[in-house]
Design a protein around this nucleic acid. Structure first.
Lengths: 196, 196
DNA sequence: AGTCTTGTGTTGCCTAAGCAACACATTTCG
DNA sequence: CGAAATGTGTTGCTTAGGCAACACAAGACT
């Protein structure tokens, strides 16, 4: 009952079915009112099988958030991309799309679990930023990099979050530009000019 | 190793994956040049699993044709529909769509296996016609019904087949009308006026 | 109050699917 | 030509998933 192997096609398929079932259900129902039974039924898998993969629906949500978020990053940001203005711009665009996906198309991240989702996504974002920064500023101490990753991550997240809630505003695009300027000036002040 | 149960979700899923893999491959490759290995790989199932379900790719094609065709019929023609002009019209439209699906969107039914496909589909069509006719003309002997089903089935099939090969013609719609008139007059001559 | 329904975790047994290896055909190509 | 490569069926063993049943909890109905 280990299930640690990630290459068994049955496991991959089942987890995908479960994730897509949750996404599908979340388009019409509140996360809290979605039962494990619902998920298992729409995924056409046995309820016992669900519990073989996840302890509960919160664990599923948790895994889904990190998997989908990092997948989105790997799709859009090349592995050798260093942290510079272009990368920051891409990250901002990506965060906007992610907000739309998880807050608008789905009802996930609304109400009571919003906080859980937000901290999770910010954590993933900070991990990714730490990697990007590490490649760009290898000389710096790890501590500084981690701090920067936290600051920038929360800035980008809350900035795009604010943008998302004020999309109707005519200054929407300007908001994102400001966010970019703020971030890049901050990172330059801390670590100096990026190499490119 | 029986696999005769049709209600195990794993079996349903696997057969669907296999069928969709074949349909997907058939969009780009000739049926003859599609290997079981190809099908298993694009379906993300094991090759041995394929052989647990089908003896070879021809058996798969055979099952797929009848399943998809009858599914299409059940989607479009209500179970209590008797055989009359409206039903004939629906059947003709359905056959046209089926031709487009299997001869245009896929490369299935081209070249060497075309004959196999044609006879298979005609057989399915005749079974369905026999059921429809039986409901409409219950008084008649079973022999007559079967004969009519065969005649009408092959007429409708070859008629729509001809239409499909001459779609560019400006008289295309008229062709189908002629087919309808021919069929209905024939059935009336044999069995009398339909009840509705 | 009580019971009826609905969801949650968990269990043991059974079956479908994965995997690796086999022997045997084919093609393909130097 | 012969060897490498690719496809075909088949096998024995392992593992993921299905099924049914369980005890328990929480709301709903009268």
């Amino acid at each position: 009952m280990a299930l640690q192997e990630g290459n068994d096609p049955r496991v991959v398929r089942t987890r995908l079915l479960i994730q897509e079932a949750l996404l599908s259900l979340a388009q019409h129902k509140e996360f809290e009112s979605i039962s494990v039974k619902d998920i298992a039924e729409t995924a056409s898998i046995n309820r016992a099988t669900f519990y073989a993969h996840y302890v509960d629906k919160y664990a599923l949500l948790d895994e889904m958030l990190s998997e989908r978020f990092t997948a989105l990053v790997h799709e859009r940001i090349p592995a050798d991309q260093p942290f510079n203005e272009a990368a920051a711009r891409q990250l901002i665009a990506l965060l906007c799309d992610f907000q739309i996906l998880f807050y608008k198309e789905c009802k996930i991240a609304s109400r009571s679990i919003a906080a859980v989702v937000e901290t999770k996504v910010q954590h993933e974002l900070q991990q990714i930023l730490a990697n990007l920064l590490h490649k760009e500023y290898q000389s710096k101490k790890a501590d500084n990099i981690q701090l920067s990753a936290h600051i920038i991550g929360s800035s980008l997240y809350s900035g795009t979050r604010y943008w998302f809630n004020n999309q109707q505003s005519q200054h929407a695009d300007a908001l994102l530009d400001d966010l970019l300027v703020f971030t890049m000036s901050g990172i330059t002040a801390l670590h100096g000019e990026p190499q490119c």
